[in-house]
């Protein structure tokens, strides 16, 4: 990707967010076939095709500065979106290392990290941050290490402590979530935190996923895609602010649906952290309006079929019930029923 500039745009109030043609082309469309069933579908988080969202361990795109600014605004109103428990101190530094090293290696034009023993020097050019600090000494940073670094990266981060053959969500920076609250869910075990996903508990999906994650190895991160839909390009669809965004759910009409309704895809990656033996769970959201999506007719047709066949429990769980039919009706004339074959490619 040779996107030189970061866009000035908003994810609230006037919602000026939009995707460039390049951002649409690289959108991580999640449906390889016409049917959707909840599954864990985990794969190795290995570098993907150049230009794709999978090219690097942590993807930085044209929305970087705007997303970091939106996080700053959310934290200003509600500091509890960042929860840190004291026993996660090693994991805080693991995160500093993971993010700084990946960004400096993958985007040298924007980020630089130099080390002299434990004396580190971090430069984040787009955000204008130039910070020297001593690795392992939290007093040399202006705020807790985990908060410092997650304010400088897109997506939500939940750090899970591993103990008693389970994982506990003991730390998190969560400002762009699909309707869940880190202030409320902090400290929960893997299953407490995930359940219930309709159609998932019964088939043992979470038991298998947990066992797999308990064995996740340092140096071998994994990833999966998840999706939902949202009205307006709003990152902060939190339960905390539901009174403010809830009314949007009933504002979709046949006239505004292409503009107002967004497919929201989460690239979820899981990393074993070395010092703490914790697991970092990153949830990176990508938004695309239906108008932008249907610029690739193959995607429009595929989404039409997915929504038509979606199990009612999953539709309710994802909060789509108010506008799913309106979306289906809007997409229907664009679907000629042609065989799309397998795969998520746009064309």
């Amino acid at each position: 990707m040779n996107t030189p500039a970061f866009k000035h745009e908003t994810f609230r109030d006037d919602y000026s967010f939009s995707n460039s043609a390049e951002a649409i082309r690289r959108f991580p469309f999640p449906f390889p076939e016409d049917d959707y069933m909840y599954s864990v579908n985990i794969e190795q988080h290995e570098p993907g095709a150049p230009g794709s969202v999978l090219e690097h361990l942590i993807d930085i795109d044209e929305h970087y500065l705007a997303e970091c600014e939106d996080r700053r605004l959310t934290l200003e109103q509600d500091p509890d979106r960042c929860i840190i428990t004291p026993h996660m101190i090693d994991a805080q530094w693991d995160m500093v290392e993971l993010v700084m090293e990946s960004l400096a290696a993958d985007y040298p034009q924007w980020f630089s990290l130099s080390k002299n023993g434990d004396d580190w020097h971090w430069i984040n050019t787009p955000m204008g941050i130039d910070q020297q600090f001593r690795f392992g000494d939290a007093s040399t940073l202006p705020m807790p290490p985990f908060e410092f670094i997650t304010r400088q990266v897109q997506g939500d981060w939940i750090i899970m402590d591993q103990r008693d053959d389970d994982l506990f969500a003991d730390m998190g920076m969560v400002t762009s979530q699909a309707d869940w609250s880190i202030a409320f869910d902090a400290g929960m075990s893997f299953k407490e935190w995930h359940g219930p996903v309709p159609q998932a508990n019964e088939i043992g999906v979470f038991d298998r996923a947990l066992k797999y994650l308990l064995h996740l190895q340092y140096g071998s991160p994994v990833r999966r895609l998840n999706w939902t839909m949202t009205v307006n390009p709003r990152l902060d669809t939190s339960p905390e602010n539901y009174p403010f965004w809830g009314p949007d759910n009933v504002s979709v009409t046949p006239e505004n649906v292409g503009d107002k309704v967004y497919l929201r895809v989460e690239l979820q990656a899981l990393f074993r952290l070395p010092r703490s033996n914790a697991i970092a769970f990153s949830v990176r959201g990508y938004l695309i309006s239906l108008n932008e999506l249907v610029t690739y007719p193959r995607w429009g047709k595929r989404l039409h079929r997915i929504l038509k066949g979606l199990h009612p429990d999953l539709s309710e769980y994802k909060g789509l019930d108010h506008y799913r039919q309106t979306v289906i009706d809007w997409l229907a004339p664009m679907d000629d029923g042609a065989d799309l074959g397998l795969g998520t490619q746009p064309e």
């Binding site: 929960m188 407490e192 995930h194 359940g195 219930p196 508990n201 019964e202």
Partner: peptide, 8 residues
């Protein structure tokens, strides 16, 4: 029937 919220 058949599922409950695990956090309860």
């Amino acid at each position: 029937r058949g599922y409950w919220i695990r956090s309860k």
